[in-house]
């Protein structure tokens, strides 16, 4: 579950960042919003990877 949430956040953040770059003139605030989603997703992914991977969470 944790892994699924992490990957969803990363995917949404990445797609959002691409949209900001190509269709919104690269507005830095919107880019950072997308980066924030990716950041959270990556932290959760590593938390799952290190702590919960063996438990199948």
């Amino acid at each position: 579950m944790l892994r699924w949430i992490a990957h969803t956040l990363i995917a949404i953040g990445t797609v959002g960042w691409v949209i900001v770059i190509f269709f919104m003139g690269g507005d830095p605030n919107k880019q950072m919003l997308a980066a924030g989603l990716m950041t959270l997703g990556i932290v959760l992914h590593h938390l799952w990877d290190e702590v919960y991977r063996d438990k199948g969470a």
């Binding site: 960042w17 880019q31 950072m32 980066a35 950041t39």
Partner: peptide, 10 residues
């Protein structure tokens, strides 16, 4: 920042 995060994440 965003591009590097995206590459890593994906």
């Amino acid at each position: 920042f965003g591009m590097s995060l995206g590459i890593y994440g994906i």
